[in-house]
């Protein structure tokens, strides 16, 4: 009866790895439905050739983002990550690389169509990221992996996901501890061989510790009867609100598809 796991207490740090979704409407939905809708929506928008559907989609995604109740901070940081690449494209898409008439020398020519393409990509990238964060960012990561197991992802891969995410935090703490120990010994990073050697050795130490720890983890798993099956103890309960959400999501995806491709189908 324990589906979606209770949200972890909010922490003062805002590092994205300390992922603690706020309780809200979106957090209570079945992650299986959210994963399927998020994937279908991303694919549809990613494949749109024209700007109309992505523009409508951006409005729809903004609505989703507000509805998810995650707060603008969650979106702000990721918006920067997404739009860094978008800005890079704005910089380079309007310029076409070519070979000069004599061959050999490389020429750059202005290409105004590149700007339209950059605009289209900006719409798509932002529409998709807002929706994905609103839907998947409102679930616990473990619940998403769990939903993937129910959606028939290979069991080995899901086990790898769960163990990876579980020990990601352990290894990060280990890393921060080692960095602290280095800082206490007056290590200040700079562009020199000493810095690179120290950090390479830090990575080496982390590799060795993770290998040793993995032996203990595996032995502990064997002690608890691990024989290759990763048992799913929790089973999600599909509720009426999930059906409502999926039908609404499906309707939105269908209508965006019709807006984009309906004309060509009609003709």
């Amino acid at each position: 009866m324990a589906r979606p796991s209770p949200p972890a207490p909010r922490q003062a740090t805002t590092h994205p790895l300390d992922h603690a979704p706020a309780p809200g409407l979106a957090a209570r939905l079945d992650p299986r439905g959210k994963v399927v809708v998020a994937l279908a929506y991303s694919l549809l928008l990613a494949l749109c050739p024209g700007p109309l559907a992505p523009a409508l989609g951006l409005g729809f995604s903004l609505g989703l983002a507000v509805w998810s109740g995650l707060g603008w901070r969650v979106f702000w940081r990721r918006a920067l990550a997404v739009n860094a690449f978008v800005a890079f494209l704005w910089l380079f898409l309007p310029w076409r690389l070519g070979l000069g008439p004599a061959g050999g020398q490389i020429t750059l020519s202005y290409n105004p169509q590149g700007l339209a393409l950059a605009g289209l990509i900006t719409l798509k990238a932002n529409a998709i990221f807002l929706a994905v964060v609103a839907l998947l960012g409102s679930s616990q990561i473990n619940d998403i992996f769990h939903a993937l197991a129910h959606l028939r992802l290979p069991a080995k891969l899901v086990t790898l996901f769960v163990l990876f995410y579980r020990y990601l935090h352990v290894m990060r703490r280990e890393y921060l501890r080692l960095r602290q120990a280095m800082a206490v010994r007056c290590f200040t990073p700079g562009s020199n061989l000493h810095t690179y050697r120290s950090l390479a050795q830090l990575i080496g130490v982390l590799v060795l510790r993770s290998l040793d720890r993995s032996e203990r983890v595996y032995q502990a798993m064997l002690c608890r009867g691990f024989a290759g099956t990763f048992w799913l103890l929790d089973h999600f309960h599909w509720r009426r609100r999930d059906t409502v959400f999926c039908s609404l999501g499906g309707a939105a995806i269908l209508s965006l598809g019709l807006v984009q491709w309906g004309g060509t189908l009609w003709n």
């Binding site: 086990t159 790898l160 163990l163 990876f164 993770s210 290998l211 993995s214 983890v217 595996y218």
Partner: peptide
Amino acid sequence: LPRVALLSAV
């Protein structure tokens, strides 16, 4: 599997 998982984490 645990070895690959922990190394991925590192």
